[in-house]
Design a protein around this nucleic acid. Structure first.
Lengths: 212, 212
DNA sequence: GCGTCGACCAAACAAGTGCTTGGTAGGCTA
DNA sequence: TAGCCTACCAAGCACTTGTTTGGTCGACGC
């Protein structure tokens, strides 16, 4: 890489991180394969060849974008898993965490959602599949814990419920826009209301019940 | 859905429809842009140029695949909307209809899910956006009807709920495999249980309550 | 036999792709 | 002034892409 890159981009936005941001936006919008290095360069106001002064390849750009994001995200998940609260609260926090990630890193989430399948075919991106498995374990653990402690219905199909939650949470990146009509907190509220009142053994209506 | 269409090649699988099927499978698996005409030709055992004896272009292949499927799907939705049952039943039927579509036309659904954004940019595929709006109207109508008649909670954000349902249903195409562990009916059952017991004003636990 | 037709081949084309090369301009430091 | 460094340009390379063209082969009807 570069000689002085041991502590990169903590405060000052270098040209490198700036270019990564531009690339992330285009990858998210048009897909990785469908975004050309000339697209990225044009958006940055330079020529395509000049990108290779900063990066080895187009692949290493997504690589850096995705791996950085995933590291941050899973550290947050691990913190939730390790926290000392009941399963229902953990699920609540994990869901809010995800919507917060969509709010703060919409491009990264979109790229992962759209291109993980394609990229996962390369050895270089093997960590994507690992992260996927790790995510599954987080949710299955939480759901199993919830069923075991009685806060979740015992007739749930854990696997299906996991997929239901995972999909519903992450697809929101397709329509959610930071700064739009709803904040990510509002979206999480609504989603949790729908989700929990469906899978909880003790339904908790969000406001005083009107119709008994 | 309908047993068979009347006009084009209802019974005998012509070489043309055979090629369309092969193309659909590849488009669904790798994405439209990421599938080359040489991929399709190779899978069919011919050379890429020979495809142009059957089709005008690669675009017209997806066009035919998607438009045919959409026509069939929305005819089914219209039938549900027009049926003379309460809103909850209509929602139930619409959801089951969607999972049935995923079961019977997984390739078409996957292509629409993954590539509608990209394809929608071309005038030729303007009908995709129209169909999307039409789908939104179907669900918003059903949800509004449900809230109005009191079978759905009155504090629902119709727009958000519509998106949750739409996303949850269609995203299942990413993992559902016809002939796999769960039938599409079982999956629909589980989803409806989670969904309805969450948004219904009258929560119905699926089995006698164990913990009060 | 003759003509026609559907299905396909062989070869090429122009445009677009990721990436490489050699070079340049300006700023910083010694 | 000299040397180095970051950021970039200009031009091109090898390859892939969708598509076109002219031709071949066998089946079928007359």
């Amino acid at each position: 890489m570069s000689p002085a890159s041991n502590e990169p981009s903590a405060t000052a936005p270098t040209r490198r991180t700036e270019l990564l941001g531009i690339a992330a936006g285009l990858f998210a919008e048009k897909g990785f394969k469908n975004t050309t290095v000339r697209d990225i360069a044009e958006a940055a106001g330079i020529l395509s060849g000049s990108l290779y002064h900063h990066f080895d390849s187009k692949e290493s750009m997504v690589d850096e974008i995705l791996s950085t994001f995933q590291e941050e995200l899973f550290a947050a998940y691990d913190a939730v898993l390790a926290s000392d609260v009941d399963a229902r609260t953990k699920i609540d926090r994990a869901v809010r965490l995800s919507f917060e990630a969509i709010d703060q890193h919409p491009h990264e989430v979109a790229i992962f959602q759209n291109d993980a399948g394609y990229l996962g075919g390369f050895e270089r991106f093997g960590y994507l599949a690992e992260r996927n498995a790790q995510s599954r374990e987080v949710w299955v653990t939480l759901l199993t814990e919830g069923v075991g402690s009685g806060v979740l219905r015992h007739d749930l199909d854990i696997e299906l419920t996991y997929r239901f939650i995972r999909d519903t949470v992450w697809v929101a990146v397709k329509w959610y826009r930071p700064g739009g009509r709803h904040s990510h907190v509002e979206v999480a509220d609504q989603y949790l209301t729908i989700l929990l009142d469906g899978i909880s053994t003790d339904p908790q209506p969000p406001s005083p019940r009107e119709r008994p």
